[in-house]
Simulated scan of single mutants.
Amino acid sequence: MNQTKIANNTEAKREIQIGQNWKEWAVEHKQILSIFGILIAITFSFAVLTDSFLTSNNALNLIMQLAPNLIVAVAMTFVITTGGIDLSVGSILALASALTAVLLSAGFATPVVLLLVIMAGILMGSINGYIVAYHAIPPLIVTLAAMLYVRGLALLITGGYSVAIASDSGLLTVGIGTFLGIPVPAILAILIMVIGIIALRHTRYGTYVTGIGANEEAVRRSGVNTKTVKLFTYMFSGGAAALAGLIIASRLGSGSSNIGLMFELDIIAAVVLGGTALFGGAGTIIGSLIGVTIIGVINNGLTLMQVSPYVIQIVEGIVLLIAVIVNIRVFGRKRM
């Protein structure tokens, strides 16, 4: 009898502990849970408003569209978590797209093109990171300038025209191929996301990134080379944007210097909406995934409803504004 009573008490305590753990987890992740609820509500709304939203073809199309955004959003999460920002990712994406088509047209092998394009993105990111980290120039100014001159480079090498990619090019697999029935872009996006989650939460680098955003001077005094950490973060951002440009060029079958306009704002909006602190010190890859999906679903749903693209741009601007306001209310304004 006593043993039964003890067992019942133990089970009750275990259930109470589990309940407390769930409550603590819910409080800690309240912003992610709230935006996930918003995603569900938006998805349900479009499912009711248009018959084609929940079709398999539209789901596949949405996945293909979101993959490049998610790849760049993962890298942008690291950048914003350090207290920085990267406005050049759209231009680097365009440069990568243009380089891909031009190099293939020049007869370069697919593996060489992949390597050169990714290296070009990393180079652009390293220039941003070096100036931000080693010359203490505000990242807003540095990456705004890069947004202009990198786009200029893309226009220069293409002459402002789209450059076609041969239909038999092996590179097309990157954008439209599948592996075990899963689109290759989705596999790449998931891989980058998993790497990002592990790096941000379970490595020293991720700890340094978060620490720099919260209190860079304290991290520096603890013996960490904060300049190198920031440099690597911007290199990651440039490389991710280049990979996204490769995927888009492969999917469209052409490279263009005119793609990626306003792309950086969509990414920043998604990351901030997802719960990464706009002024640094807190970042979440899962939140960025949800943020990217929300913006993608809104864009996709309104397009299916044949809403004017001008109205869609207005909606995206409002979403960005709301995301910034909520983010500042949740995390507070960073003290200078």
Score class of each variant (00 low, 15 high):
I42Q: 10
A242T: 00
W22F: 15
I247G: 12
G281P: 04
L156C: 10
I192C: 06
V271S: 02
V117R: 01
T210L: 15
E24D: 14
V292G: 03
P68A: 03
W22H: 15
M262Q: 04
N300E: 09
I165A: 04
V72E: 14
F53K: 01
G280H: 04
A75L: 10
I131E: 07
V271Y: 01
R335H: 10
H202C: 03
I18P: 12
D51H: 09
A120M: 05
V219D: 04
F236Q: 09
V307H: 01
R151V: 00
G175K: 03
K30D: 08
K30N: 11
Y130W: 12
F232L: 14
A59R: 12
S256N: 02
S52P: 10
L265M: 12
I312Y: 01
I35V: 15
L265N: 04
A7K: 15
N128W: 03
A96S: 06
S254A: 15
I187V: 15
G317M: 01
R335W: 07
A240C: 07
L321S: 04
E217P: 07
I192F: 11
G213P: 04
A214E: 15
R333V: 12
A218P: 13
D51S: 13
A75E: 07
A270I: 08
V292W: 02
G19M: 07
V319G: 10
V27Y: 07
G206W: 01
A240L: 07
T43I: 08
V150N: 00
S162G: 15
M235R: 09
I322M: 08
I295D: 00
G19C: 05
A98R: 05
I312V: 12
G107S: 11
S237W: 02
A120H: 02
A133I: 05
S126L: 13
V292N: 04
N21G: 02
T207R: 11
V224C: 12
T303I: 07
N2M: 08
L246Q: 08
N69Y: 08
L261Q: 15
I118R: 02
I92F: 02
V272M: 01
I80W: 00
L172G: 13
A214N: 12
I32A: 00
I285G: 06
L54S: 14
A270L: 08
R333G: 10
S56W: 13
